[in-house]
């Protein structure tokens, strides 16, 4: 039974979601093997939320997204997206969601970008009002300069911006971005994030995002779900995850002269010293600030340079997987 979704309602509601694939291998004599890509997965996203969906390659992220959006049917379990059963009401759901697969294009490669939007507007049967929306997106994503360029000639950054405008043209309630920033340079990433933040502030669009980029997670999401071997390994906020796996920020100190190990600095834990203490690596414990540590260091040894390393997503995920597997 499909019901018309109302505001504040659950946008994604998945229970016991499972997906098996039959993998065939071998030559003339084929062998069959069942691979479980997603196992008994529960997922809830409320309207207006921004959720980061994180995991190693092959953990089941894309399979989950395909099940949420109606591309793939679950082997077991139930899922409702925007109040619809994605399999039975694929076309109704398509009007409510926008999806961007970073690696793949939904634009027409031989058409100018402008033409792609014209066709998409027709496909979604958008009234004349869509022009306002399109102008808004062109402005915000800075598409004007290459609107008349065939898509195949666009740079990756330009194309992704074009893809996101295409996914948002029909003002979907849920925006799903699969690795949107992969392969982009730092500046393009930052502009894209700024756009998404503004877009969500203006329209309250719900966001589901998969990414390998810690900055994406920090800037764009309220909450993260980490998936491991098809199951939820962690659900909560990012600081909670970092605390749980002990992935602290690391301060790397380059000192003017060889210094004994700075083992007893408050708010830190010494990780390593190199070159007779010329370089020392300290984990920044939760609650302490880099500034406080610096003040402390300045009193003990002359400082030449310092860098702060943020824990990256892969690292955090790897640690989480390791603790989970160690715990059984």
């Amino acid at each position: 039974m499909t019901t018309t979704p109302t505001a504040g309602e659950q946008i994604v509601h998945a229970r016991g979601l499972t997906r098996d694939f039959v993998v065939r291998s071998g030559g003339w004599r084929r062998t069959k093997r069942v691979v479980r890509a997603v196992v008994d997965l529960d997922l809830d996203i409320v309207a207006g939320e921004a959720v980061g969906y994180i995991g190693a390659n092959g953990a089941g992220k894309s399979t989950t997204i395909k099940m949420l959006t109606g591309i793939l049917s679950p082997s077991q379990g139930t899922v409702r997206t925007c109040g619809y059963d994605p399999r039975r009401s694929r076309r109704a759901l398509a009007r409510e969601i926008g999806v961007v697969f970073g690696q793949r294009s939904q634009l027409w490669w031989d058409l100018p970008l402008r033409e792609s939007y014209r066709v998409l507007a027709a496909i979604h049967r958008l009234g004349p009002g869509h022009r306002e929306r399109l102008d808004e997106l062109i402005e915000a994503l800075d598409l004007e300069a290459f609107l008349d360029t065939p898509v195949r000639q666009l740079s990756l950054g330009q194309r992704i911006r074009g893809e996101i405008a295409a996914a948002l043209l029909h003002s979907p309630r849920l925006l799903v971005l699969d690795e949107p920033t992969i392969g982009l340079d730092v500046l393009s990433k930052e502009r894209l994030r700024a756009f998404l933040v503004a877009e969500r502030a203006a329209h309250g669009t719900t966001l589901l995002l998969t990414t390998h980029d810690m900055d994406d997670v920090q800037r764009l999401t309220d909450r993260i779900v980490v998936v491991d071997r098809g199951s939820v390994a962690y659900a909560g906020d990012l600081p909670g995850l970092v605390r749980r796996v002990g992935a602290d920020r690391v301060i790397v100190l380059d000192l003017e002269e060889p210094t004994p190990p700075l083992a007893d600095l408050p708010g830190t834990r010494l990780l390593a010293t190199e070159h007779d203490g010329l370089r020392q690596r300290l984990a920044l414990l939760p609650g302490s600030t880099a500034a406080a540590v610096l003040a402390e260091v300045a009193g003990r040894a002359p400082l030449r340079d310092l860098t702060i390393e943020e824990p990256d997503v892969e690292d955090v995920v790897r640690r989480l997987y390791a603790t989970q597997r160690a715990g059984g």
């Binding site: 066709v119 507007a121 027709a122 958008l126």
Partner: peptide
């Protein structure tokens, strides 16, 4: 002017005409 809602066949008309032009 491109049709907006375009009736029942609007979407297909837009798809086909964009293909032919290309």
């Amino acid at each position: 002017r491109p049709t907006a809602a375009g009736g029942l066949l609007g979407p297909y008309r837009a798809l086909v005409s964009s293909r032919l032009r290309s």
